[in-house]
Structures are given as C-alpha cells and as structure tokens.
C-alpha cells in the first residue's frame, strides 16, 4: 500500500478535468441532474472532511454528522429565529460547527480507539437529541423550513456551479493541510502517538487541530446542504449521516486523499439511481462494503492505484 502521495504539488492534471467535467455535466444535463450533482458535491466535502480524521489522523469518529448538523442549524436558526441576513447565516453555520468540534474534540482526543469512537457517538447524540427535543427553538422533528428559498432561489445549475466552486476550494485547502507540516504531524500522531510524543509532539493538540479542521469543513458541507434543501432537520446531525460518511470513506478507500471523493460519488449515485429502480439500494451498498473490506481494503482509490501502477508498468 502506498498511501502517501509523494509529491506535495496539486495534481492539476486530475483536478482541472474533474472540475471542468463537473461543470460540463451541470451545464448540459439539465436541472434534475444538476440537483443530483450538487448532492454528490456536498457529500464529497462531507466525506473528505471525515477522511482527514480516519485516513490521516487514525481517529474513527462515530459522530461526524454532529458538525454537518451544526453547520445546517447554524445557518437556519439565526435566519429563522433571529431574522439575521443570509450572509450572517452562511458565516455562522461553519462557525457553529467549528466551535462544536473544538468543544467536543477537546474531550474526545483524551480517548483512544473504540473509546474515542463511543465518545464521539455520545457527543453527536447529545447534539442530535438537543436539536430533536428542544422544539420550542428548533422545531424538533418537524425541523426548520421556509426560512429561505432553497438554493438561494437560483437555477439548480447555477447553485450547482456555486457549490462546485466552494467544494473545490475546500478540497484544495484540505490538500494543503495534508501536505503541510501540520498534515505530517496529523499523520505521524495518527500512526504512532507514542513515537510522535517522544519526538516532542503533543499528540492531543495535533489531534484536536485535525478534529476542528474536519468539523469545520463538515460544517461547510452542512451549511451548503441546508441552503440546497432550504431546511434543516435533526437527522442531519444523526447517526444515519455519520454512517453514510463512514461508508463513503471506506468504499472510496482509506489512506487516500481521493477516497472521500470516490466514495461520495459512488455512494450518492448508487443511492439516487439504484433506489429509483429497486428499493433495496442499502443491500447493494452493504454488499459492496463487504466486498471492499474483504477483497480490496484500500477501497476504490487503492484499487485504481494498483490498476494505474500495473498499466504504467506495462507501458513503460
């Protein structure tokens, strides 16, 4: 397995065609397809933010949706209840997620392995339950709706292009993080915290930084999603969304930057199209997941990497 993309440079060779391709699809496929593509893009960001924790930081979070949900409610609540302007909501969404991740992360990084997973689960369930139970403020399970026009009232294709721009910028930022000193520290601590500490790193501090970055980006995804739907529901912070993101990361490929991207694309498209024809799309996902874990633990990214390697060798 060769997890480390050895060069720090952005692989524009891959990025530019991907972004242009997405733009072309948005422009040509019509409004319905634009909605699906936007959904995919938001999930790409959400899964990639979790990927920073799992693939690089060695932290398996079972509560990542909390920050997605905080991103959504950070936008919806001030708009619906305080009548704040839209731009304030757009800023407050990710900010709420960042603060939530800071508070929860400070607790969670004290724990390791399964205990870490359980504590992130407990904390996200606290967020979910508060959103669900405090119906005087959050509307409970009826959520917050009608506080803004879905997609800012834009044509779905235009909103898709906007989301594409924001998600691309966030992924570039994430790439920079991964390839920077703090990224190296996150990977080092994720792999061997004792070795890292004996080299002078403060493992918990490094993990907390990773946790907050991941939470903030999940918050951006949540805010984009709330704008996309024009609503916010407690489920956005629930265990269902967390599991979705984990499944995306594993299918896409652990220990790979692209894992979150591949996983989100495959998962969301399957969910959209398979569920159109058969109701049993979760069964299909479950079987794919089984196959990935048993046959190609490095996921789709790992499989593609091996394929590319083999092809490269043949042509060389």
């Amino acid at each position: 397995m060769r997890p480390a993309e050895s060069s720090g440079a952005v692989q524009w060779r891959l990025v530019v065609p991907a972004v242009l391709g997405a733009l072309a699809l948005l422009a040509t496929l019509g409004q319905g397809a634009a909605l699906v593509i936007t959904d995919v893009l938001i999930m790409v960001l959400f899964a990639s933010s979790l990927n920073l924790l799992t693939s690089y930081g060695g932290m398996v979070s079972f509560g990542h949706a909390a920050y997605f949900g905080l991103g959504a409610y950070g936008l919806a609540l001030p708009l619906a209840k305080l009548g704040l302007p839209l731009w304030a909501g757009l800023a407050l969404g990710p900010l709420a997620a960042a603060l939530g991740a800071l508070a929860i992360g400070a607790l969670c990084v004290r724990l390791t392995h399964i205990y870490f997973a359980m504590l992130t689960l407990a904390c996200s369930e606290i967020v979910f339950t508060i959103l669900f139970q405090a119906y005087d403020y959050t509307g409970g399970d009826t959520g917050i709706t009608k506080f803004m026009a879905p997609r800012l009232g834009l044509d779905p294709r235009l909103y898709g292009a906007l989301v594409l721009a924001i998600v691309s910028a966030c992924l570039l930022l994430l790439w920079k993080v991964v390839r920077s000193p703090i990224g190296l520290a996150i990977r080092a601590v994720g792999e061997e915290p004792h070795r890292a500490a004996a080299l002078g790193y403060s493992p918990r501090m490094v993990q907390l930084v990773a946790f907050v970055i991941a939470g903030t980006l999940a918050g951006v995804a949540g805010t984009l999603f709330a704008v996309y739907q024009g609503n916010a529901f407690p489920d956005y912070a629930g265990i269902g969304f967390t599991i979705d993101a984990l499944v995306m990361v594993v299918i896409g490929g652990l220990h790979s930057f692209a894992g979150g991207v591949y996983g989100a694309v495959i998962y969301t498209l399957l969910k959209t199209f398979v569920s159109r024809y058969v109701t049993e799309w979760e069964l299909v996902i479950g079987l794919i997941l089984l196959a990935v874990v048993l046959v190609s633990p490095a996921g789709v990214a790992g499989g593609l990497g091996r394929l590319g390697h083999a092809l490269g060798r043949r042509s060389a």
Partner: peptide, 26 residues
C-alpha cells in the same frame, strides 16, 4: 478480519446493518 484495524471491524458490521435493513424491508 480479526486483527485488522478498528475501522474495518466496525464497518464490516455496518455492512451487515445495511443488508439486514433491506432484507427486513423486503
């Protein structure tokens, strides 16, 4: 997968969750 990393072990049981949920619905 005994001895594989934490996430793999968790996720494989999640796969069973997804499969059983649909089986039950069917």
């Amino acid at each position: 997968i005994y001895g594989a990393d934490d996430l793999m072990q968790l996720i494989i049981t999640v796969a069973l969750v997804l499969v059983l949920r649909d089986v039950v619905q069917m």
